[in-house]
């Protein structure tokens, strides 16, 4: 089995459902080969933006990867790979990131409990009212999330067509033909249109950076 085969949904389902444990073990190993490093990069970046998960990036990412793979395996084995446009990689990373988000949330809760000094008090920030007095901490986190904030703002300011083109290409990884059928564009010009959209986004983000 070539690990790259796992990126093809029908083969992924076939290997995960195989009654031969050697095939399943090989498929699980291939998930590590294909996705471990890309996810670890994301996990590090995600955890390092939060004060309470800094320096725990490695453990949390590994745990999230393992949990994500468990759930992904079970889902594929049971329901197959629903063709929801996304690639195997995007789907897999989404499972791991969802697990990571849960783990990070737990860390946040225990961190808040620890700071509150009362294990029974679970503190959540409610609206704009910072009842806990930990506003400074949140501001610090916000500062570190600046890159994500810039991209988010940039996306909001982008016209709908450009936003969709970028999302379909970069997130759902749709092929030119699929994007063409959704937009009415000529398949040959899709690449160019996506590139133009990215240039627009780049300009907006640079503008926002200069404003700051």
């Amino acid at each position: 089995m070539d690990c790259k085969e796992l990126e093809q949904p029908p083969l992924l389902v076939q290997y995960f459902r195989s009654p031969d444990p050697i095939v399943v073990n090989r498929a699980l190993l291939c998930c590590h080969v294909l996705f471990y490093n890309p996810f670890k990069g994301l996990g590090f970046n995600y955890c390092s933006t939060k004060t309470y998960t800094r320096y725990k990036e490695n453990d949390l990412s590994e745990d999230a990867f393992s949990r994500g793979l468990m759930c992904f395996y079970e889902k594929i084995r049971k329901d197959g790979f629903e063709t929801r446009d996304a690639t195997v990689k995007t789907m897999f990373l989404a499972y791991c990131l969802m697990q990571l988000k849960g783990l990070v949330k737990n860390e946040e809760r225990s961190s808040n409990r620890f700071r509150a000094g009362d294990p029974d008090i679970l503190i959540e920030k409610k609206g704009n009212v910072d009842e806990t007095g930990y506003g400074v901490l949140n501001e610090e986190n916000d500062q570190m999330d600046k890159k994500e904030v810039l991209f988010r703002k940039g996306f909001e300011l982008l016209d709908e067509m450009s936003r969709n083109l970028i999302l379909w290409r970069k997130y759902l990884k749709l092929k030119n033909e699929e994007i063409a059928s959704r937009t009415g564009l000529d398949a040959g010009s899709v690449n160019n249109e996506v590139y133009k959209s990215m240039e627009k986004l780049k300009k907006i983000i640079n503008g926002l950076r200069n404003k700051d």
Binding site: E82, A94, Y95, M98, K147, E148, F151, R152, Y171, L172
Partner: peptide
């Protein structure tokens, strides 16, 4: 950076397009 940011943006929303 864009790919990473998109994943994080979708993570906040719970990946609605993926039906998880």
């Amino acid at each position: 950076q864009l790919e990473e940011s998109l994943l994080f943006m979708e993570l906040e929303k719970g990946f609605p397009d993926l039906g998880i």
